[in-house]
Design a protein around this nucleic acid. Structure first.
Lengths: 152, 152
DNA sequence: GACAATTCGTTAGCCTGCTAACTATTAGCG
DNA sequence: CGCTAATAGTTAGCAGGCTAACGAATTGTC
């Protein structure tokens, strides 16, 4: 007896759906030499201007060491630059370069296509419901660190 | 002007929610020396008995080279064994070991806890809706390979 | 002012996602 | 029966998720 219908679980569907989304987006971006995650860096910089690495990692909800390597590759490819913060020598400020501007335009094009494919046949209401429910699951999992829970 | 509200997109919420789910699950499994993905291998073997690598990769919806390394680590840790298929020398059959049985019991415990946390405050109907919508997005992205779409 | 705590960014190492390419084997067709 | 196409599993290399640990710098407290 299995005890757990894991292949029908939310975790299973979250995993396979997100992987498929990333693959579709990355495939679409291949001609521009950029990845889904790099496009998100450019998105945040486009939205908010220069950000520190700590701020950017927070907005992308990834750990700082993960962002370091993403930024390393983007700096190598000339899409971003790092500059020291004039007021706090611990910090580095990340800015998009002129070279990244046409790339961002392509990213937006790809994003619109992938989004349209992903949501084909879903009403605006269903899309809003999906985002709301994902947000709820996300919020639930931010609470109650596992150590506290299992130490009961 | 930004042109695209990427931080409100489905892709964004899929990404951050799935990462959070994986982290919570992996955190819960740390004491048992296993990972979320390894637990899924054991789950499929528990559900269907021995499977070939190709079958297992298909069910987990990952590429075969990815599965190779997951299985390598599990074989190293004594949780699975590979044996040649008696009728087809290309194939290897993956079976769970006796050592994995108590581990599976712990995985089920953790899965129940994480699931309960993730869905806290959601009705059964909302959970069904979430899975259905994720399934629709997943199905949409399986259709129409990107190359065909962009070649229009 | 001294010192502890915290923050920032980094490096190392592990896990897991992919593509490309390869070898061994089986299936199918003429 | 011979040959081509397809399948199965592997290796290599890159991208990106994490934790742990570290050094440099700033903040906060006494």
């Amino acid at each position: 007896m299995l005890d757990y219908d894991f292949d029908e679980s939310i975790g299973y569907w979250l995993t396979v759906t997100t992987q498929r989304y990333h693959r579709a987006f990355n495939d679409a971006l291949v001609p521009y030499g950029i990845t889904f995650r790099q496009s998100q860096v450019l998105g945040w910089l486009a939205l908010e201007g220069e950000l520190s690495q700590a701020e950017l990692a927070g907005k992308m909800m990834i750990e700082p060491p993960t962002l370091v390597r993403i930024l390393d590759r983007m700096e190598r490819d000339g899409l971003i630059r790092r500059r020291p913060c004039p007021t706090d020598r611990r910090r580095k400020l990340i800015g998009a370069t002129a070279k990244s501007k046409p790339v961002w335009a392509k990213i937006v094009d790809c994003a619109k296509v992938i989004r349209a494919r992903a949501t084909d046949g879903l009403t605006d209401r269903q899309q809003a419901t999906l985002k709301k429910l994902l947000g709820r699951v996300h919020e639930n999992l931010l609470l109650q660190p596992p150590a506290e829970l299992f130490d009961r």
